[in-house]
Every structure is written in C-alpha cells, then in structure tokens.
Amino acid sequence: MRILLVEDESKVARFIARGLSADCFAVDTAADGNSGLELAAAYQYDLIILDLMLPGMSGTEILRHLRQKDTNVPVLVLSARDAVADKVGHLELGADDYLTKPFALAELLVRVKALLRRGPVSRASVIRVGDLELDRLSRRVTRGGRPIELTVKEYALLEYLMSNAGRVLSRSMIIEHVWDQSFDGVFSIVDVYLGRLRSKIDQSADHKLIRTVRGVGYSVSNGAQL
C-alpha cells in the first residue's frame, strides 16, 4: 500500500512517515502544495494524508483539484484548525476524514487503516486477544471460557481496545470513541473505568492483558507485541 503524505513541517512529516513505515506502508512525502498535487497526479496512491496550511498551494485547493478530476483516492486531512466549520467544509469538499493536530500517532494509524478498509475494522463478530474473547453479536465477554459481566460502558471500552489490539490508544481517543466530545479533558473518567475493567479481566489471571503505557494510553495485547 502506498501513501502520499503532503506536509510542510519536516519533523511532523518524518514521524508520520516513520510510523506508517513501521506498519509496512510505503510513504512518499511532499513538502509543498504544488509538488503534492504533481505526485498525486503522477501515481496511483491508496491514500493521501493532506496538511491544510502549505506553502504554494493550500491543502484545500489540492483537495478540490483531486475531486474535480474524479479521483476517488481516500483523503485524510490533517489540520491545526479545529473549528466545526472547517471540518464540515472539508468533508463536504470530499475529504474522507479530518484529524486535528496535535494527534496521537496511534490515532492516525487507526484512521488510516479504517480508510483503507484493512486491519482492525474487522468484520468478524468475535474478537480474540489471548484467551480473552468478545462476541459483538451476543455482547458476551469471556476469559478462558469463564464469562465476565460488564456494564455497557465497560463493554464499549473493551470493544474499542480489543478491536485495536496491540495498539496503544490515548485517553483522548478513548474519550472520543467511548464517551463524547463533552468529556474532553476529563481523563480521570478513563482511568477509573479502566481500573474497573482491569479488575474484572486481569485480577484473577496470571497473564495481564491490559497494559498502561505512561503518557500514551492503554492497550490490550497478548504480551509479546509492543
């Protein structure tokens, strides 16, 4: 899979490219609007990650050009502008997703995979991490065959973590997916719920599945990964 990254801040471009490469994507980088559009026209990319404030041609114009030419390549917009009007405007222009800076790399990767219809957006109804099983249809969770009772929120939290198994999810990402924007900044709520979840899932087990990565967030993984 080949991804075009149009981003003028070289450091931002570098760590995004590094993160994508680590997930086995091929990444081309353009540092200004014109070369970005040229690259987009020259190659058949699977995804374009587009910064908005660019020298030369703005990301918005690139997006408009792409959509005028009926290019259906998915476009993920990166921007420091977080006004609702900006988001809506670009989505209407044909962007497929909109991510506000600063973002967690993990979140970018999750969204990239979702756009590419690959990875954790699994169609399987049962997700497994080690001996932990979550059935999306019956909403049943078992560990080693033993059923675990979860509240609605705990279930939603676990489902989000398990569908991104092996990946560290930031507390902001968790709030946005499991709660809503209104809880922005109330990180303690994530910590409390994770504490509950952990006591139900990991307490009686030797092998801990829920991990805390300080400063980054939480992940569910079967040990060896990460």
């Binding site: 801040e9 450091k11 931002v12 993160g19 800076k101 967690a104 790399l105 560290v168």
Partner: peptide, 14 residues
C-alpha cells in the same frame, strides 16, 4: 504544530 512534533517524537521514543 510544535506540540504535534513533540508528541510524535516522544511516542516514537516510547
């Protein structure tokens, strides 16, 4: 912007 970079680099370090 600097915050994005800072965070990206630190996450990479982790």
């Amino acid at each position: 912007t600097p915050l994005t970079i800072l965070r990206g680099e630190l996450e990479a370090a982790v």
